[in-house]
Write a protein that binds this DNA or RNA. Structure first.
Lengths: 361, 361
DNA sequence: CGGTGTCATGTCATCGGTGTCATAAGAGCG
DNA sequence: CGCTCTTATGACACCGATGACATGACACCG
């Protein structure tokens, strides 16, 4: 590979002048610049970032760690789907700032994390972003010499700057929208209780009811997703049975995520309940492969993974540039809006519910 | 950040001796080794890979480029789902070999590719893997000085080493299994015609029929997936109508991918055809979020994205080590097997088909 | 006891850029 | 014309590791 000296020799100038041409550092005469550029083109010269890094101690690299330091029960395979969108968002921002991304994956083995950090530090990464595959609490091992660290899609108790989705807001928006569309009895099929999003979503659900003056009815909240564990389908099925058996059953089911919504579609149909005519369904995630393809198309909440990535990268770059006032608000949320599709119908609040219909029919 | 000289000074030895301790190069007395290690620990010393790279011209980096240099019609948003699994597979193998991954994404803009290559070369990546989000043909721009390049999930006409899924085999295995399970009239809802997999899958379908002595009936092959374009659902619905209207309708529908299978479930149900009792359904991809959750669980073909990534990385490492006999077979295929779930029933080939049933009933 | 070999360690140059300082060539001015 | 000032460029050290080579301390041998 050609070096700066080769270029200098061909152009008949000193290496330093070549350096100046590359960096636009100082005044270089037009003639010299042209000669240098011609020489660079002729040799297909590409500067060595290693040499540059040594001298300037700026690597132009940011490290990324993904994988599970999970607080979820073991044995649950993380699907890892959102991560690619987060990574793409990060990439987008970093590339625009001339930064290259070093990536490493724990492969689900939390014990590897210190090694991964070390590797990133060997390459003198100027900042590190840790990405989780779902909104969770994490506890990173003690890390010496890691100056700039941002968490994406997760958070810790140590006050590390974090970018997380606003689950409470998303659920609030969805449920408010359902109420606007005439729904008064809103079933809620929950996420596993140990998830961070469990509480947040439930809060959003309750706040939306409260703001609309609808009393909270605990009977409408049932266990839904259990990480795809065996027996989940039966669990969801029985949850739905309980909801349908209520004196005043729900007119819509909010599912903890889109995956669960798919299961609910099947279960409702197998029970002879049509979607959305007899029961509206809403998901959470706007996991498009599911939500757009499902029939009828699924109303859900957009979880803006790309934005989470972008914001995490923007935050990191600010930190690297030494902006202050960041420690002030360690947690940054990104809001996603409800996406209205065919699985939710508009109804007249005064018309009786499913159960009553049946009774009458 | 501490340097090798700082360590040497604290340990009371020369820098070279510290280097020897790190690399296990030459004999070092136990006492000296202990002193050096203590000093390294005390300073939390982490060697600089930039300095090492300069001296040895080995960076320990491999570059990865993802994104669309698509042969698909424009305006189609790549879902980008498999990529994460491929990337994880690559990461797994590289990490095991002490190699760090540099990643860059075109963000769907093919014009960026030369820039991305340049950036990877500035960091002196020792090899580059190009990953596509679905099995496709690509044409990379002319690249000077890229010695070791491997394509994953795509291929070109220039003979670049490539690791691709064996779509023909997958479809063959699936259809053979359907025949074993008593199906004789096998419907086939195709992928878009411009996809590489379109022909391969159709070939596998036909070969399976041929091997079983079942005549190929073109009426059983209908247009299915159209990249989620508007009107896709209507298209699939009419394709299914045509299949159901046949004198001897199919007993099972093979869908070009799992996404399409989800749509087919809904359409069949809306037409009053039960899955799998009246019509079995099979997908392709084993896209687990869909296949395991769908009700009934979807029979499909595993597309081993993780293995594709692993194999691409293994191939690249072989090339980097200078193994020969690689140019000999530029295309390496990875086979995926059919995964049998509830959406396909075993039937008695002698029993009449749906249409006949209806007629009789 | 001198010669030879092994072990343990140090010295020095080098990888490819860039920061610092020096310097040469004009330009402008009194 | 001599002085200062700007512009354009070069010389040189340095960043942090490591390869090549040198050296010093013993051990062993005849």
């Amino acid at each position: 590979m050609a070096t700066i000296y080769d270029v200098a020799h061909i152009a008949g100038v000193s290496a330093k002048t070549v350096s100046r041409v590359m960096n636009g550092d100082a005044l270089v005469s037009d003639k010299t610049r042209a000669a240098v550029q011609a020489a660079m083109a002729q040799l297909a010269y590409i500067p060595s970032s290693a040499a540059r890094t040594m001298r300037s101690s700026k690597s132009g690299l940011v490290g990324l760690i993904t994988g599970a330091i999970s607080d979820a029960p073991s044995g649950i395979e993380a699907v890892g789907l959102p991560e690619i969108f987060i990574v793409q968002g990060i990439q987008r921002v970093l590339a625009a700032n001339g930064i290259t991304l070093l990536i490493s994956d724990t492969g689900g083995n939390a014990a590897k994390v210190p090694d991964l950090f070390r590797t990133l530090q060997e390459h003198r990464a100027e900042g590190i972003i840790y990405v989780a595959d779902h909104h969770m609490n994490i506890a990173l091992p003690p890390l010496a010499n890691v100056k700039h660290l941002v968490l994406a899609n997760c958070r810790d108790e140590a006050g590390t700057p974090a970018v997380i989705p606003d689950d409470e807001y998303g659920q609030y928006t969805l449920v408010s929208g359902l109420i606007e569309r005439g729904h008064r009895r809103i079933g809620f099929l929950t996420l596993p209780e140990n998830l961070v999003a469990y509480d947040l979503r439930l809060n959003g659900y309750q706040r939306a009811l409260r703001d609309a003056g609808i009393p909270f009815d605990a009977d409408l909240v049932r266990r839904g997703d259990s990480h795809g564990a065996p027996g989940e389908s039966a669990l969801v099925s029985s949850s739905i049975d309980q909801l349908l058996a209520l004196e005043s059953p729900p007119t819509v089911l909010c599912c903890g995520n889109d995956r669960l919504a798919v299961a609910v579609y099947g279960i409702l149909r197998s029970k002879g309940v049509s979607v959305p005519e007899q029961m509206s369904v809403a998901g959470f995630d706007d996991y498009r492969v599911i939500s757009e393809i499902l029939f009828p198309a699924l109303t859900t909440v957009d979880l803006p993974y790309g934005r989470i990535g972008e914001k995490a990268a923007e935050l990191l770059i600010e930190m690297m540039r030494g902006s202050p006032d960041l420690a002030a608000s360690p947690r940054h949320t990104v809001q996603g809006e409800a996406v209205w599709r065919d699985s939710v119908i508009v109804r007249d609040p005064k018309v009786a519910t499913l159960k009553s219909n049946r009774r009458n029919g």
